[in-house]
Amino acid sequence: MAWAGTGIGRLGLWWQARRAGVPDGAAPPDIPPGGGPLLLVQVSPDARAAFAQVQRRLMRKRPDLRILDAGDPGPAVAEALMGADPAALLLLGSDLPPALILAAARRSLPIILAEARFAPEDTGWTLRASARRELVRQIRAILVTDPASQAIALRMGADRRRVTMTGPVAEIRDPLPCSEAERSVMAQLLRGRHAWLAASVPPDEEEAVLTAHLAALAQSHRALLFLAPRDPDRIDPLAHVIEASGLIVARRSLDEDPTEDVQVMLTDGPTEMGLWYRLAPVTYLGGTLGGDDAAARHPFEPAALGSAIVHGPHTARFATEWQQLGGAGAARQVSGAEELANAIAELSQPDLIATLASNAWTVSTGGADVTMRICAPVLDAIAKATT
């Protein structure tokens, strides 16, 4: 694909190339030995986990494949890499290395961009935005992670036929186990009651969780809260606090069951989480409201088991996963205790729960499918280059 850009686009590309990560005086990276096809890749920091999955699948399909991480080279190094006769260039993530893309485009090398996330700033008129628009037009296949990125890619001038929304390459995690016999007994006890789980709740969020449950009870008088305190030592003191508020509490540590009159079931803290996720259609993940998310549970735990997720604004520990869930409409974010109460009350409605839970399950289990969709155009380009 020959490159011809607008004046401001060419200026932006010149500026971007001068800022490339590897200077022209540097030697090109060593080409992997062997006689198999060569795939050049460039992996953004936000796509390292995705690359690991993509690389494994590519190597299963083409054991002879040689993969070289080209980084972000200057023009001379990029041209030297083209001299190694690569079969394709795979870009993963948000970065668009200018010299590498232009060198590949001049040789009509297939360029595949996956795990692509675009921001509204990419449609602006800064030098950087103009350069990125020119680069996007050189790419044969653009696989984006979310609808917003798809819309922005089209506004950037990408050919609609080349843009596909795959969703993100989510980390693949095995669902947490539980005793099926125990789950069956508990499910019988619930008998269709609306239940929700507050998981790994630190002491400074206990009041907000209990307030949210009062809102749920106002919406559905049979609502049941499974409360898993982060610190198991909080179980007994917390039981006294709950009883003093007028609610009826049962304790898992005392082998008590969530009978019809029980309104709060205190679990044994971090144990048996697979059981509680399965029983609760809605889960609030503790630590995300008050800012103490250092010990927060992984959001794909409830997602993989069909529980809709509510969380606060503090999501640094699993930032990528929360971004994936948020972009897919698979989680409800709240800003504080009042919004938490409103969300929990609202999510007593089965249709809203089902939509969130379905979207979350798709994100948490879709890593394998998205990986295959990324690998398909790469393997196709390699096959054409080697026949």
Rank of each mutant, 00 (worst) to 15 (best):
G287V: 04
A328R: 04
V41N: 06
A116Y: 02
A341G: 11
T267S: 01
A228D: 11
A141Q: 09
S245P: 08
D233Q: 15
V163T: 03
E207P: 10
G306M: 01
W15V: 07
T166F: 01
G5Y: 10
G35Y: 03
I374Y: 10
G366M: 02
I112W: 10
I344D: 00
P110F: 05
T362G: 15
E321R: 13
P175G: 03
Q349W: 09
F318G: 03
P32N: 08
M82N: 04
T315A: 08
A76I: 11
I152V: 04
P37V: 01
L285D: 04
T123Q: 08
M1D: 14
T164P: 11
R57N: 07
P258G: 01
K61R: 12
A208F: 11
A218Y: 11
R155Q: 10
E272F: 05
A187S: 08
A198T: 00
R234F: 15
R10Q: 15
A131V: 02
L39V: 00
A383S: 12
R373Q: 08
F318L: 05
E205Q: 02
A50C: 05
A354M: 08
D174P: 14
L325A: 07
S149Y: 00
R278L: 15
V22K: 09
T164Q: 12
G157I: 00
E321W: 14
Q55S: 09
M265Y: 14
K384L: 15
T387P: 13
M186G: 07
E121R: 15
A80L: 10
A308W: 02
P350N: 02
V169R: 07
H298E: 07
A170R: 03
Q150D: 08
S44H: 07
E79P: 12
P33L: 15
C375N: 04
Q188C: 09
A116K: 04
M186N: 08
T166Q: 00
D159L: 05
S348M: 12
G124I: 05
D255A: 11
R230Y: 01
P232D: 00
E338W: 04
V43I: 06
S364T: 09
A2P: 12
P168E: 10
R18F: 05
L275K: 04
A141Y: 09
E134N: 01
T365R: 07
H314V: 00
T288H: 07
E243Q: 15
T267V: 06
T315D: 13
L190M: 09
G366W: 04
L38F: 04
F318P: 06
P229N: 02
A383E: 14
L254P: 07
I309E: 05
S253C: 15
R18I: 00
A50I: 05
F51M: 13
C178Q: 12
E206H: 15
R155L: 14
L238W: 04
L352G: 15
A319S: 11
R133D: 11
A316G: 15
P168I: 07
G366D: 06
D24V: 07
I152W: 01
E115P: 12
